[in-house]
Nucleic acid binder design. Sequence first.
DNA 1: GTCTATATAGGGATAGAC
DNA 2: GTCTATCCCTATATAGAC
Lengths: 207, 207
Amino acid sequence: MKTKERIVATALQLFNEEGEPNVTTNHIADEMDISPGNLYYHYRSKDDIIWQIFQNYEEKIRQVLSQKNVNYASLEDMWFYLHMVFEVIAEFRFLYRNLIQLMNRIDFLKRHFRRILAMKSQTALAIMTNLSEKNLLNADKQTIASLADQIALTATFWLNYSIAIYDDDFDEEKKLSHGIFHIMRMVAPFLTEKDKALLDELSTQYL
Amino acid sequence: MKTKERIVATALQLFNEEGEPNVTTNHIADEMDISPGNLYYHYRSKDDIIWQIFQNYEEKIRQVLSQKNVNYASLEDMWFYLHMVFEVIAEFRFLYRNLIQLMNRIDFLKRHFRRILAMKSQTALAIMTNLSEKNLLNADKQTIASLADQIALTATFWLNYSIAIYDDDFDEEKKLSHGIFHIMRMVAPFLTEKDKALLDELSTQYL
DNA sequence: GTCTATATAGGGATAGAC
DNA sequence: GTCTATCCCTATATAGAC
């Protein structure tokens, strides 16, 4: 791996572990065993590094959110969608932990994140509309629209919520699947009896 | 107002306006036309000021969340509850904007906020259980429990969500009532027809 | 209680040699 | 591309006079 890529990889790791405000450019250079000057040869500023990480994030999340090649036709598909979204969020969790501050500091990031958030909502809406048309989800348009927003909000802030509410050493992996179940339970009242049962079964298996 | 109180009041105002990380102790002193030295005579550190503000917040939110003197018996009561919660959140919104960072920095704050969050969930649960027993809310226990958590999560992060999603100059007041409606729409599918109609009416009035 | 002056520390970032 | 050395700036916090 080239130095330029290593900087981004190391920064991401440290940001996720320590929180972006607690990680200085010197820390990053130290961790990589390079000099601070070298780091600044590759990136003009700390925000430049963050911006590069964000672009990597954006590429990944867009792939998940573009519905082109997938036809969501069952509850499992929705499950799958949520799982992928939460995976990407976990990989770039520092972005979500300090979202407002980062958006205020880096204007590009604000605009791009806003668009991604809208996409999340739209994708959730598309999936549920699809399920509704297949009679797998029994809810009117208004309810579905409201659920879609709610799913986007919950996915975005679930990690913060679980940090706020659980003990610190609570297993990372569990937090994620807990979040997915949390969302599925919001949808549960509108599922068919068969899918409700499936969800209950999965609950006992995973939680 | 004594200087000690003015410091807290000014700090709260600046934190809310500029974001806590962007406000230094010098800014606070400047804004008050006192010297930085004087500020440090009254408070040992910046975190000490934040801790004092937090205690003021805690007192207010506990009053809202203690259900002792209120018997929630109608949809309007729930509305009222949400309104009061959102008011307090708005008054201390800087806490919510940088929640994770502040919790990591100030250990007391973490523990206390955790307890308050649990109370929010419990109060929402109590209200809805009450409504359910009066047949104003038609949902099973599992659904109600899930809704209660969802309400606590949404109330906590609604402000961040609206900052993330809306234009910056979007009216503060509207953001709040928008959040209340958002929560009410989550509950709507389980309301009586009469209350659903009431909600729709209020929607057209307020949004 | 309040001021002025200052210590201390650390972070972001650059210059110039190699 | 990489290093060393260093500059600049700002933030928290303290000392000591009034």
